[in-house]
């Protein structure tokens, strides 16, 4: 394996994994042993080893979400040792490597906990509440026509950089999982400020923020207490400044928009 360390000692670990057959059933923490884990494995590869072992024993493998395994898609979502995506800063679960743990360690793995994110099975949660928030306004309506020229709309570099910073949100839900209030404010703020900063998004800015916040409240997420756990645990480093932008956008829209409801 490229980049692997031949001297790295294999690890034996105890896993405490949340097992829950389906949304209705009640769940519990079940203990498993995994042996001969390479420190170069990613956390998800370690779970693959566990699942292979469970399949060989004729047991139900642990369900968990994953897709690209490159830290881009935002599918993986594990609450590891009491923190979103585990102990390492700025990392998704798939990019977390076993060398961050020590031989003989006990690792607790739980799903994201929020009433707006019901458990599908084991460690997999239903994050479609995020999709419904996006559907409420997290887009730019465009009339399809000829392909516009590049740089037709001038955008200052610092503004496009800030919009891009907000746009790096991968929608994994680590912010909700880490928040004491299970609040989705960091996610919503990233989407709102990304679009509000750019001229293409400003056209619908007022209705967008009103509808997205209303949807966020309907989905049952908590309110923001400005604690900052979300930003500290965010794998792509979305900052709290976005929540301030969201609040500004919201307040302005409520005062000046023509929406009477």
């Amino acid at each position: 394996m490229a980049g692997s360390n031949p001297n790295a000692k294999p690890m034996n670990l105890t896993l405490r994994v949340w097992r829950q057959p389906n949304h209705q059933a009640s769940g519990q923490i079940v203990e498993y042993k995994v042996n001969e884990i390479s420190p170069d494995m990613s956390f998800l590869e370690m779970l693959d080893v566990l699942n292979e072992d469970l399949l060989h024993k004729g047991q139900d493998p642990v369900a968990f979400d994953h897709d690209c395994r490159e830290g881009i898609c935002g599918s993986c979502a594990l609450f590891i040792n009491g923190r979103s995506h585990g102990p390492e800063k700025g990392t998704t679960t798939c990019q977390l490597h076993m060398r961050k743990f020590s031989d003989g360690e006990t690792i607790t793995i739980e799903p994201w906990r929020a009433n707006a994110f019901p458990v599908n099975k084991d460690l997999s949660v239903d994050r479609s509440a995020f999709d419904r928030i996006i559907q409420a306004g997290g887009y730019v309506s465009v009339n399809t026509g000829g392909t516009p020229d590049g740089n037709e709309i001038p955008i200052p570099k610092d503004i496009s950089d800030r919009a891009f910073e907000a746009a790096t949100c991968i929608g994994c839900g680590a912010c909700v999982a880490a928040c004491k209030n299970a609040s989705a404010m960091l996610f919503v703020s990233a989407k709102v400020s990304q679009l509000a900063l750019l001229p293409q998004g400003q056209v619908e800015a007022q209705t967008r923020v009103e509808n997205m916040v209303a949807r966020m409240d309907i989905e049952g997420f908590g309110a923001c207490s400005n604690i900052g756990s979300c930003a500290a645990e965010c794998p792509v480093g979305i900052s709290l400044e976005n929540i301030a932008i969201l609040n500004r956008e919201f307040l302005t829209a409520k005062v000046v928009s023509n929406n009477m409801a």
Binding site: F79, N81, G82, R83, P87, N181, G222, I227, S229, E233
Partner: peptide, 21 residues
Amino acid sequence: MRNKSARSHGYDQWEAKKNSE
């Protein structure tokens, strides 16, 4: 009340002290 009702099932392990004051 709203914030409490947003998470009725808590975590087994919760390390909030590592990410907030």
